[in-house]
Amino acid sequence: MRAKPILLVTAHRLAILAYIAFALFPLYWLLKVAVTPNDLLYSEGIRLWPSRASLEHFDFVLRHSAFPVFFRNSLIVSGSTAVIVTILASLSGYALSRFNFRGKYWLVALMLLTQMFPLVMLVAPIFKILSPLGLTNSLTGLVIVYTAFNVPFATFLMQSFFDGIPKDLEEAAMIDGATQFVAFRQIILPLTLPGIAATLGFVFTAAWSELLFSLMLISGNDQATFPVGLLSFVSKFSVDFGQMMAAGVLALIPACLFFLLIQRYLVQGLTAGAVKG
């Protein structure tokens, strides 16, 4: 009777370890390539750790490339997008969660439609619309586009967090004379902080990774975000994998930090809202 639980527990821990190994091994390899000096890159290509590790690629990327500029641009774009999307999605998510109104059905249908088509289709039209406004080759233009792309999913996410908060709370406040907006701001929003954190992190990582529109809307190096910058390592004379991977490792840091902090809230919040169809 006692042997069975121990066996089960061991199997469970081993399975968890297998998942962790699968999740982390590619990231480990990224780091390994980034610290391998160029002369060993191919000769020790398949060793688990190079006989000589060095930080020369990191040093080069940080001091002699435009990477710090890309990094700053990405930080500005992703940060602004995350904040604006979260504000807009809190408002619209609250509307979907708390009100029954004509047009609600159409709003949801519209938001679902935006998830359906290949965004490639929008590149040329968006370029045509933003160009006369002076919003191409500008970080502002990029923030506007990313905000629009991320608002629908963020709205559904925020709605599920609001659904998890009992309605009586703001009804009680409104009986005490508060308007609904005041009740929303002072009572409901503070309770949704985990949801807000989750949405912020979710949108930040999405904007941080976006390549296509950044590639198409930005032409100058001084406005480029880091995915575009990374590709510039490829388009030089030869692909400099060491430097590229070093830049990749550096670029992973903020996204991963953000994600490690918020993943707990993501699960909690979705639990509270009891994600249902």
Binding site: T205, S209, L211, G248, L252, R264, V267
Partner: peptide, 21 residues
């Protein structure tokens, strides 16, 4: 908590970087 944070990490990796890797 730690296991959960680690196994969810690939989600934070930019897709084209995942592809390159």
């Amino acid at each position: 908590g730690l296991a959960q944070a680690l196994v969810f990490l690939p989600w934070a990796v930019p897709s084209f970087l995942a592809g390159l890797n």
